[in-house]
Computed example of a mutant assay.
Amino acid sequence: MNDDVARSAYSLPVTAPVSASRYAGETLLGRKRRARKMARVLAETHPDAHCELDFTTPLELAVATILSAQTTDVRVNQVTPALFKLYRSAADYAGADRAAMETLLRPTGFFRAKTDSLIKLGQMLVEKYDGELPRKLDQLVALPGIGRKTANVILGNAFGVPGITVDTHFRRLTNRFGWVAEDDPVKIEFLVAELIEKRDWTMLSHRVIFHGRRVCHARKPACGACTLASVCPSYGTGPTEAAAAAKLLKGPRARDLAEAAGVDPDLVPAAAVLAPEEP
């Protein structure tokens, strides 16, 4: 890895609050130990973390991930049952009627571009890989509609090959955690890979994403109801008072999250439990 890239990972984000000063002199070894401790806490905090795209085959996951661009997993899961019923193989996508597929994909947004990607994906899979998805990252990223993030989703969740998925939540939280000070997704992927054991990469991605959706929100994180508060250099970015923070928790496990952070779960309003998590 380029030395400049490596060095950038070991300086705290310039947007971190004053409380980050206690980590200003953190060594690489110290950061690695802290990152792995945070990863273990996230595993305890979000035992239900998983890939939220519905699929039964690697091809279905590839298609669903392509469709998830610029929309929510919930919306994709509403569209894919009908899609997967009609298109079961790479050959089906390769020979798809463009107008019919565009109609199905319209709710996901950018439906023309996504239709084009799926048809071309099917064609290339048929021509080069006998209709099967390859299992190597360099081969996956050469396929239409599949970038590095999508490839890691496929590898980790369909083939059991560890991969780090850097979405908007993962990028935001790894900077807040002081693991990296970087915006480029590929650089973040490699820098986090140096901190976390390879066997944990796939599940770490899911757990960080769940934490970003439920606790560590973009505009106002629930710092006072966060299980990572004692080891996070960005503690204080959001409210630290328990009652105020508890109201910011979202999702079906909001009260469990509060309790795990040592906060009275009764402080979590019913609306928070029913509130949609951040997309």
Rank of each mutant, 00 (worst) to 15 (best):
L248I: 11
A245P: 02
D264N: 15
A49C: 09
P144I: 05
E278P: 00
P134K: 02
E44Q: 13
C216I: 06
L86Y: 04
A275G: 06
L140D: 11
T45S: 11
T108F: 05
G25L: 10
L249I: 04
K32G: 11
L274K: 14
E102N: 02
P47D: 10
T240N: 05
K128Y: 01
D97L: 07
S234D: 15
A99W: 00
R148A: 14
K250I: 02
G122P: 02
A261L: 05
D264C: 12
G160H: 06
D130G: 00
P185H: 08
C223I: 10
V166H: 01
E52A: 08
G262P: 10
S8Y: 02
A62P: 12
A96Q: 02
A275W: 05
A82F: 00
A254T: 04
E102C: 09
C216K: 04
G163R: 09
M203S: 08
E241P: 04
S89H: 11
R106A: 14
A82P: 04
R34D: 13
A6C: 00
V153Y: 00
E182K: 05
V18T: 08
R253V: 08
T237M: 15
A258D: 08
G147S: 12
D97I: 10
A6F: 05
A261Q: 03
C226G: 14
A151S: 15
R135T: 06
R7G: 08
P13G: 11
A229S: 15
I119F: 01
K128N: 09
F111R: 09
R176Y: 09
L267F: 07
T103L: 12
H169Q: 01
G238N: 07
T103E: 13
K187G: 00
R255F: 11
A16P: 01
R40C: 02
R253Q: 10
G178A: 13
T202C: 10
T150V: 14
L42G: 05
R33C: 10
D130N: 07
A245V: 02
P221N: 03
D92K: 04
L125S: 04
R106H: 14
F170I: 03
V5A: 13
E259I: 05
F55P: 02
A271C: 03
A96P: 03
A271G: 01
A20Y: 01
R88M: 07
A245Q: 07
D138A: 06
L133R: 00
L143C: 12
E259G: 09
R106G: 07
R176S: 09
A193F: 09
F190W: 08
A271R: 14
R171A: 13
D264G: 12
A99L: 04
P276H: 10
H50K: 13
H211T: 01
D184M: 03
S89I: 11
T240M: 11
L248W: 08
T108A: 14
A243D: 14
V192F: 03
A272M: 09
D92Q: 03
L86C: 13
E277I: 06
H50V: 11
K187E: 07
R214L: 04
L29H: 08
K37Y: 12
L104M: 15
P134V: 00
L267A: 11
C226M: 15
A35C: 12
I209W: 00
D138R: 07
G122A: 12
A254L: 08
V63L: 11
R214I: 05
R33K: 15
P221T: 03
N152G: 06
R106W: 11
E127R: 07
K136T: 13
L12P: 01
V79T: 10
S21M: 06
H206T: 00
A181Q: 05
L59E: 02
